[in-house]
Simulated scan of single mutants.
Amino acid sequence: MQDDRVNDDAKPTVLRPVTGAAHCVLATLALAGVAWTARGVWQVRLALAGQPTAGPPDQGGGRHRPLTALEDAYHLVSTVGDVATVLCAVVFLAWLSRVRDNARALTGRRLRYAWPWMYLGWIVPIANFWVPRGVVAEVHRAVRPTARLPHSVNVWWGLWLVGALSGVGLMYADTTDDVIARAYTNVAPLLAADAAVVGAAVACALMVRALTGAQERRGSS
């Protein structure tokens, strides 16, 4: 997984600015956290309202009943959450690209994970269990090689995996109408996944602040 873009005779010497990118990440993380909290609130409202006598929105056989006002609102909240998540991912990767380039400059050597893995690591099966965390850990080691990895990194990654791979969180394959039906019958797993995603956003914000601050201090020293 060596970085083939770097040659030892032309290592970057100037650190890329990361403060602005970090602020953008923090803003989008806050937006995503609020959106996923709202999703959980609406799921609780659906559970308390109870399933209509006409049954779930998806009636089977390609038939759908008209949605209630609460169900319509959940569709909107869910869409906002999805958009916020995508926006957050794009901004986070832009920040990660900057701090990773700085890590190369600070270490003066090739990194373990080549640059395509910064993107492929999130989607390649099996590798997505550890590669993204490994990229972040390598960035930290470039700045503070003898220091322990911040707890926020492990908390972020653990909660991310719970929210993404639990079957009801970030990567569930159900339609919004299916999620509504699940909220009526068994809302607890949905809320647990929502809580994991929000917790991951908080831990990610702490991680971004820690790594950004460490690079800024190292660059000014």
Score class of each variant (00 low, 15 high):
2 Q>W: 06
3 D>R: 13
4 D>P: 09
7 N>E: 05
9 D>C: 07
9 D>T: 15
11 K>F: 07
15 L>I: 05
16 R>D: 06
16 R>V: 15
17 P>I: 11
18 V>P: 01
18 V>S: 12
19 T>E: 06
23 H>N: 15
26 L>M: 05
29 L>M: 06
30 A>Q: 02
32 A>P: 00
34 V>T: 06
38 A>T: 09
39 R>I: 11
42 W>R: 03
45 R>K: 10
48 L>H: 04
50 G>P: 02
51 Q>H: 01
52 P>M: 12
52 P>V: 13
56 P>C: 11
56 P>V: 11
56 P>A: 13
57 P>D: 10
58 D>L: 14
58 D>H: 12
61 G>I: 12
63 R>T: 13
64 H>G: 01
65 R>T: 13
66 P>I: 13
67 L>F: 10
69 A>M: 10
69 A>T: 14
71 E>K: 08
71 E>A: 10
72 D>P: 00
73 A>T: 11
75 H>W: 07
75 H>K: 04
76 L>V: 15
76 L>C: 05
80 V>A: 14
81 G>Y: 02
85 T>Q: 08
86 V>F: 14
87 L>R: 08
89 A>D: 02
92 F>D: 01
98 R>H: 09
102 N>F: 06
105 A>L: 03
107 T>Q: 11
109 R>S: 10
109 R>A: 13
110 R>E: 07
110 R>Y: 03
111 L>N: 07
112 R>Y: 14
114 A>S: 15
121 G>K: 09
122 W>S: 11
123 I>S: 05
125 P>C: 08
125 P>Y: 02
127 A>I: 06
131 V>I: 15
132 P>H: 13
133 R>L: 15
134 G>S: 15
135 V>R: 15
136 V>Y: 05
137 A>Y: 10
140 H>G: 05
140 H>I: 09
141 R>F: 12
142 A>N: 07
143 V>Y: 04
144 R>S: 14
145 P>V: 09
147 A>V: 04
148 R>M: 05
151 H>C: 01
157 W>T: 12
158 G>R: 08
158 G>I: 11
161 L>T: 11
177 D>E: 13
177 D>G: 09
178 D>S: 11
180 I>H: 02
182 R>W: 01
184 Y>P: 02
184 Y>S: 01
184 Y>L: 02
189 P>D: 07
190 L>M: 07
190 L>F: 04
193 A>S: 15
195 A>H: 04
196 A>T: 11
196 A>I: 12
199 G>M: 09
202 V>P: 00
205 A>M: 07
206 L>K: 05
207 M>L: 15
207 M>Y: 11
208 V>S: 06
209 R>M: 08
210 A>P: 00
210 A>H: 07
210 A>K: 08
212 T>Q: 03
212 T>K: 08
213 G>R: 10
214 A>P: 03
214 A>M: 07
215 Q>W: 08
215 Q>Y: 10
216 E>N: 09
217 R>T: 15
220 S>W: 03
221 S>E: 04
221 S>T: 14
